[in-house]
Amino acid sequence: MFVTPGYAQETTAPALDEAHTVEDAAHGGGAFPPFDSSTFPSQLLWLAITFGLFYLFLKRVVLPRVGGILEVRRDRIAQDLDQAARMKSEADAAVAAYEQELAEARAKSNAIAQQARDKAKADADAERRTVEATLESKLAEAEARIASIKASAMKEVGAIAEQTAATIVQELVGAKVDKADVAAAVTAARK
């Protein structure tokens, strides 16, 4: 199944030789084509023509065009980068301004809140003080009334005691008792 390269060579070798002789006969002299100097003038001439035209075409048309494309692109990219940098700095400035404003607003709101808190506290204090003052005055008034009621009650207690004592003595003894004696005795007892 497997054919070695050696075998392959054997089979092709005669064919090659045959081909050589045919070619040699056809081309006379049979020099190896790249070393056949009779073809040199033609190759040199056509190389000069084609390569010369190619060089001129590239130099005049293609290379300036490609160079131009690349340059335009480079400029455009640089321009875009500049613009992006400028926009970024603008955005940064806007952010800074915003933050400053925010800080100011925050400070202001703190101040307002503090003020409101202080005012509310002062109001509450004042209210409490007035309420306390009224309460105290009412208390004093009430105490004064209690004292006066107590005093008058005490005064009447003397009279009632005298009258009761006189009545009790009259009932027990059955005789009239001098009012002054009873008063003296009541006063002595109350002391």
Partner: peptide, 25 residues
């Protein structure tokens, strides 16, 4: 007396130049 014939080599020089030039252009 010199042979400046247009040969298959010349034709492929032209083809080379034409292909490269046309592609780039």
């Amino acid at each position: 007396g010199l042979d400046f014939s247009f040969t298959n080599s010349s034709a492929f020089m032209v083809a080379t130049v034409a292909a490269a030039g046309a592609f780039l252009f």
